[in-house]
């Protein structure tokens, strides 16, 4: 790996193109995969991008040689997640696009993304959101750290990167139920951040114009040295057998408080045998 002190920080932010949760989301087809119309950049990945941009700004900016690359994988439409990241402030974008990726589970996704990170070479920091808003499993960042054999710092609610004697390290906070933890690691590392870490910025007009000139590279599985059989449905270690939409919850009784609503709640609890 290159000497980070001379080369500047190379930060990769993984972004996902996900169905907008504001609309009804669906599962369809023989393979029971999520329908990806009306998709957007996952809100949770905006926190990771913001964290990356703040690190770069705190250490002298692009001029100091630091660089943020937004990486996504998925069908052609997924490129729009990377484009949005470029508008917000990422310096370069990479889109792993291959039909064979369709239906990837966490194992396949982490395999493909690890291959992209390796392909990019000297990466100092891989940043992700805390979960995808569609898969909701939070497995990928941990599996990525395992596959890349890098320190894993997940669910960071604060993150600082510092340089000492030419080598970079990080300090993060994790807020658990029982403890609040301070975590330290040397770079390179894989870090996922929560929505507590910052307030993501919005793209402005200047950013939107500048994004058009930023490099966006499309890679295939072959480019990153992954066999099609290792990802997608073919390479999945799990399978969805059935998927049934849950009947929407039906609205119950709604009353207006006329001075006795507290008592009526208790009547309702008693009738439901919940007291």
């Amino acid at each position: 790996m290159e000497d980070a002190s001379q080369a500047g920080l190379d930060i990769v932010v993984l972004v996902k193109h996900v169905p907008d949760a504001q609309f009804d989301r669906h599962i369809s087809g023989e393979d029971r995969t999520t329908v990806r119309e009306e998709s957007i950049l996952s809100e949770l990945d905006e926190y990771a991008l913001e964290a990356a941009l703040q690190i770069v700004e705190a250490h002298g900016g692009e001029a100091a040689g630091h660089r943020v690359t937004a990486v996504t994988m998925g069908p052609p439409a997924a490129a729009s997640a990377v484009k949005k990241a470029l508008q917000i402030g990422a310096h370069a974008g990479v889109h792993l696009s291959d039909e064979a990726l369709a239906g990837s589970d966490a194992a396949g996704t982490s395999r493909a993304l690890a291959a992209v990170v390796r392909h990019l070479g000297a990466v100092d920091l891989v940043l992700t959101g805390m979960a995808s808003t569609d898969g909701e499993t939070s497995l990928v960042p941990a599996q990525l750290a395992e596959r890349l054999d890098l320190p894993q710092v997940t669910f960071a609610s604060s993150l600082e990167v510092q340089q000492q004697d030419g080598s970079w390290s990080l300090t993060a906070r994790r807020d658990g139920d029982v403890y609040s933890e301070t975590v330290e690691a040397t770079l390179p590392a894989v870090v996922s951040v929560t929505d507590q870490i910052n307030e993501p910025r919005y793209p402005n007009f200047k950013g939107i114009m500048a994004a058009k000139k930023k490099p966006l590279t499309t890679l295939s599985l072959e480019d990153v040295g992954v066999d099609a059989s290792e990802v997608g449905l073919a390479g999945a270690w799990t399978r969805v057998l059935t998927a049934d939409p849950r009947p929407p919850r039906s609205q119950g009784t709604i009353i207006s408080d006329e001075g006795d609503a507290g008592i009526r709640i208790v009547d309702f609890l008693a009738a439901q045998k919940l007291l």
Partner: peptide, 27 residues
Amino acid sequence: FEIADFGVVGDLFKVLPQATAEIIKRR
């Protein structure tokens, strides 16, 4: 309210303490 089995349109500072007192009373 779209997903509530039982909904009260009202002020929580009135409704909740009344419910709490009623539960304690019945017990």
